[in-house]
Design a protein around this nucleic acid. Sequence first.
DNA 1: TTGAAAGCGCTAACAT
DNA 2: ATGTTAGCGCTTTCAA
Lengths: 345, 345
Amino acid sequence: MKKISIKDVAREAQVATGTVSRVINDHPSVTEEIRVRVRRVIERLGYEPDPLARSMRSKISRLIGIVIPDLLNPFFAELVQHAEQAATSRGHNVIFMTSFDDVGKEADRLAQLASRKVDGIILVPSNGFHALKAPKGVPMVVVDRLLPGYPGISADHRGGAKLAVDYLLKLGHRRIGCIAGPSNSVPAKDRLEGFRDALSACPEAAKASTPLIVEAAFDYHSARLASTYLLAMARDERPTAIFTSSDQQAIGCIRAANDLGIPVPAALSIVSFDRVQLADIVTPRLTAVRQPIGDIASAAVATLLDGLKPHAFEAPMHFQCELVEGESTAPPQVPPPLTARKDPG
Amino acid sequence: MKKISIKDVAREAQVATGTVSRVINDHPSVTEEIRVRVRRVIERLGYEPDPLARSMRSKISRLIGIVIPDLLNPFFAELVQHAEQAATSRGHNVIFMTSFDDVGKEADRLAQLASRKVDGIILVPSNGFHALKAPKGVPMVVVDRLLPGYPGISADHRGGAKLAVDYLLKLGHRRIGCIAGPSNSVPAKDRLEGFRDALSACPEAAKASTPLIVEAAFDYHSARLASTYLLAMARDERPTAIFTSSDQQAIGCIRAANDLGIPVPAALSIVSFDRVQLADIVTPRLTAVRQPIGDIASAAVATLLDGLKPHAFEAPMHFQCELVEGESTAPPQVPPPLTARKDPG
DNA sequence: TTGAAAGCGCTAACAT
DNA sequence: ATGTTAGCGCTTTCAA
């Protein structure tokens, strides 16, 4: 049994192939009568248009590409999942690619997508400041790690971080540490800005906290190390709370505290950024700032498929974050008496 | 500037388009001289063959599809990542789709992939026993949750589970609980078999442990509930160790133990299945049986692209698992004196 | 409104 | 070994 084509339909329905094509594409200029007749034949024959042939002619592939650094990062996994949903609901499929945070691989992937004539590309760029050469002729939207010169969509990292630190201040914390993300990462820098924004409203906290900022990669191990450094300080110097730039960092931070015998949240509060699923299953559950990943993904897909013009992107699109309370935060402990007391480490 | 096509190359190189095509496809019957000349022109013009036109003629799309139930499950995320790597290294791209464990969506996705003429499909089927209607004409390999009648690739769930329980037995545990996966899941059933296999070598343990098998979904919350049930038993009845069917379950189990004041691993050892990245960042780090996800993904891609014939699959392909020691296991506590002792709960 | 026909860019069969 | 040419299945002018 051979694959049935538009010709078979045309023959059976006694019309020209062009007419069948018009019916398929809901072209307005087709009589109701003919439309029905053709539809019936399509139904009867079980005809399905060939996407390949279609896009070859029409230059529309109903395919979008998504390139991320690493799917093992749960934040990106959620992003991809949501993007796929959004694309599917609009009749598109998703080509998924990983750049492993490598500029060369990234460029290669983008070129591949361009040659496949995808209708749009969602890119989470690899870290570092590189001259991104976007394939021309394909709409592209940059997500999360914004890049100057390209339409960008991300959470309001700065505002979100401020939210987190405001919360700690409200609880009464004044010595607040910060595990900042890598300095070559745009979101990391934005979150650090937010951290500073919050402190600027409280000179006392600002003074005490500014020396407590350390840089680490976004992962568990770097953060664990960095936290150990912060927490090894004398009790009256070390932070009573820490803001981390990712959930995974927070988990590393908790581990460091555990290992030093510092109870969380009793003696150390932690607020993190992202609030992926992970945050809800660790002990203690993380108090964290949630990025609206679903909204970001939908907006990215919509931008691509609705063909918004670049001029609409003089400023990147930012989505607000939201603080989700978990079990990793509490008011600061009252200072212990200076007499004997179990001292960790 | 117009897109350059094979014709432009042919003209510039003073050859026929057919010859250019042969050069592109490394067809043997081309003189070295002409090959070089054509290559040079291709280089100079920056010509790139159009994948669409190519696959339209050749019926080869250099695209493979992967359909999984849920990307938020880190096991599937790792699988997708590895599959993408394997496919890319062989010159293919990956269309990614989610079925959300819904049979209808799954069928729909498979049909879409078929109509896109992908060169192969990797499917992790949704749970439950449904008559899977695979699109014909497209090679498909079923991964992880094997399905009768289709070429299948998975870890040796049964052997892996046995590994886990053998380890617990060797540590001296005799009352070993089991958080089994959902009974409509093939891997869950296999792992439960492996659990029983291990016990069958030790009648004492078998007798004590058989009543300690409970069923739960693969996720954190279900397992937390199920574990609470197991751990609420009297101290001399409750398990001294638990085997869980996933890492997420293990984390739920640890949480349940924590909440009941049962220290892990001092009073309760836990071994889990999967050993995704997650297992290494929770406290305590999980002792777990690692599935060789990379091998599974590579094998799946290879099977598809090397066009192995179905008869090679009378039996599914199984990969062995490996036990990775973490911090969640220890020998059983010596039984406490029957006199007063802090009793949790 | 509909039909006829020219391609989209490439590969493969056939011819030389 | 290379050239020629007929499509792949569809969309889209251009006519009617």
